[in-house]
């Protein structure tokens, strides 16, 4: 008898020959969920200001380091007072987009004034998304995204973050992905603490965001020049600017960068 526990309960090779794994086209794993994102969107950056919030994301869908799609809209409006900015896997983003649209339609069924007092508030949408993200990570099948929900609720700016691990947090300035390293320090130059929100107007906030988008385009290889920007202002409501471009760039610094490609250092 073969005393190797690995062979217990199996047809013996001497009698039946070696088992052919391809018969059942069996995977070496019992089941496998998403291990990595495929088409990805890079950073989303956002900040509060005295009258609302501002959020921006570029329009690129990258396939690895290939700049594959250049017209991906990653800012999703939900109602008139919320924007959901999504980075990470684009197909998962599209799934979230669909869920949010269903959610909105269902909310509007029996709400006669769904434009104003009965509309979904940013906090409701965030609560829904954070629950969804945590539930999916607990099933070991995460939606591979980092999400920022931006909006105005009860005349106060709302800004919160949730990612594929179900981790949530809030801050007057928020960014996902590469932006969390590159843009946050720039945004914090303007708003470092809660108190700074009051002294920041829309003009300054927009300028800061545009400047950060420029820096991200300079330094993030998986970013595009074209981007979208949304402002949710407590007076003007939602202002959605699409097809913007990073302007006034200077690439002079590029010639001094050494240490890649075929150059002789």
């Amino acid at each position: 008898m073969n005393h190797d526990p690995f062979s217990w309960g199996r047809p013996s090779d001497e009698t039946y020959g070696t088992y052919n794994n391809t018969i059942a086209s069996a995977s070496p794993f019992p089941k496998m969920n998403t291990q990595q994102p495929i088409i990805t969107g890079t950073s989303v950056i956002s900040m509060k200001y005295n009258n609302g919030v501002i959020i921006a994301a570029d329009n690129l869908g990258a396939y690895g380091s290939l700049l594959r799609f250049n017209d991906v809209e990653r800012l999703i409006p939900v109602g008139k007072r919320t924007i959901v900015g999504v980075s990470g896997d684009v197909s998962d983003m599209q799934h979230i987009e669909q869920i949010l649209s269903d959610l909105e339609i269902e909310n509007n069924y029996d709400n006669s004034y769904a434009d104003d007092e009965e509309t979904l508030k940013p906090s409701y949408i965030f609560e829904y998304l954070s629950t969804l993200m945590y539930q999916r990570r607990s099933k070991m099948n995460p939606l591979w995204n980092a999400i920022i929900v931006a909006g105005v609720e009860d005349d106060k700016p709302f800004l919160k973050y949730v990612n594929l691990l179900g981790v949530t947090y809030s801050s007057p300035t928020l960014a996902t992905g590469f932006g969390a390293h590159l843009a946050i320090p720039l945004l914090r130059r303007v708003i470092d603490r809660e108190e700074d929100i009051e002294s920041t107007n829309l003009e300054l906030a927009e300028k800061t965001i545009l400047e950060s988008m420029k820096v991200l385009y300079y330094r993030d290889a998986h970013s595009s020049r074209k981007f979208s920007l949304a402002i949710i202002d407590k007076e003007q409501g939602l202002v959605f600017k699409k097809g913007l471009q990073v302007e006034n760039m200077s690439w002079k610094f590029a010639k001094d960068i050494k240490g890649y490609g075929t150059q002789k250092v």
Binding site: E104, I105, N108, Y109, D110, S112
Partner: peptide, 9 residues
Amino acid sequence: NRKIQTIDS
């Protein structure tokens, strides 16, 4: 007590 309803948006 609304009577008119919405089926889809």
